[in-house]
Design a protein around this nucleic acid. Structure first.
Lengths: 221, 221
DNA sequence: TTGTTTTTTCAACAAATGTTCATTAATTAC
DNA sequence: GTAATTAATGAACATTTGTTGAAAAAACAA
């Protein structure tokens, strides 16, 4: 597991600091979220933010370099929750890989579901470039931990596979969001399990241990 | 890491228009890419761009609303290449699912490899929020096309699975980039195949509600 | 070539951005 | 409580941004 504290319920950026800072940051974040609901992130100015939060212009620049940094901190708060909720006890599943995976999946999807509005906002506004990477990094950590005990096919490149897995889940989440969260977190988790356990059915031919077929060669410039 | 940009076919946005426009746009794109190599996208101003491209400020605003739009067009050019290279004939693989997948994978990874510098730049600069979605949408289309004929486990939600697949590949590509393209496109494709074909080994318990696939062992062909 | 069309330039401009600093106000540590 | 810190304010400022219109330059079509 990644060495993050996350003991307190309150996000790191909003705890144990000067109350004025906390208030200012909170006001700015709330204003940002509110404004993002009604217009494009691109079209939100620092002026709008400080006017909405009723703060001086300089106060913003004291804490953030730009609005992206402000949004990034809001995301950090959410990631803290993801990690925390994931840490939920499920130790009873110590050696049952599948059950572990199920539990992990459910936790992730439940977390997203809990913050559904926020996720939808972030994704739809396409405001924060690094957001998918951020959340996928977390998922990757969590997945890797789950896969630690699992005996993987030795030919599999674990680093690559971790990236594969994490972004695959993110891809599901994106579809989920696009469909306005029509499915339940449990359904999502069961689907994930299905994808992991299933394989293509049908004619299972010409599989020559990862070597590429000369015929299948695409044009090389 | 391969350094060949390899601009073979002319992108739609740069053909059959007034030569002045072509020149202006090209100059702007080149300047943008050049500047992105040395500093953060956030810190590149329109002024920088027009100064670098030796154009008037108004010329920029005649063609683009902002620098994001400029970058987006550069990305479009690359996507055009991805689609084009994918459309390459591989009709001899009409009914062999695995071979099809292999071919598809190879094409995608070769495309990325060909534009390695560009991809690395886009990803590392985290400049364009919509880029992963953009490329994953393309991959999703292509994957769906491949899976059209494949008989999937009927419990699988195809839309969700398409998202899963597309972003999973994107996750691999990101890892590939992070590792400075240490692997060959073929290796990447073979790994992808491995992930699709393999399943977790080890204690396969608690999977009730279903028969265990008799030949479920991973790749012992 | 000629005339027509379109792009680019140039200069100017209002508006917004990012910084500054002395002053005021709030919070913390003691 | 008091003193010491630290944050927030207000107002000013240079810079950058996004827009404008007329004049020049370039491309196009015949």
């Amino acid at each position: 597991m990644p060495g993050t504290p996350a003991e307190s319920a309150m996000p790191d950026s909003l705890s144990s600091i000067d109350r004025r800072i906390r208030r200012s940051k909170k006001a700015l974040k709330e204003t940002l979220i509110a404004l993002m609901r009604e217009r494009d992130f691109k079209d939100i100015s620092i002026t709008d933010l400080v006017r909405g939060a009723d703060l001086n212009r300089g106060t913003f620049y004291k804490h953030y370099r730009d609005k992206e940094e402000l949004l990034a901190e809001a995301v950090d708060d959410t990631m803290t929750d993801l990690i925390a909720s994931y840490r939920e006890p499920y130790r009873h599943a110590d050696s049952l890989d599948i059950r572990k995976l199920t539990a992990s999946g459910i936790k992730i999807f439940e977390h997203v579901h809990r913050h559904a509005a926020f996720y939808a906002l972030i994704v739809e506004s396409r405001a924060l470039p690094g957001f998918p990477d951020r959340i996928c990094a977390v998922i990757k950590e969590l997945s890797l931990h789950d896969l630690e005990t699992a005996e993987l096919n030795p030919r599999i490149d674990r680093a690559l596979f971790a990236g594969y897995q994490a972004y695959a889940i993110w891809g599901m989440i994106l579809e989920w969001i696009k469909g306005s969260f029509a499915h339940s977190p449990d359904y999502m988790a069961s689907q994930l399990l299905e994808y992991i356990r299933s394989r293509l059915e049908g004619p299972d031919v010409v599989y020559r241990s990862g070597r590429r077929d000369p015929d299948a060669r695409a044009s090389t410039d």
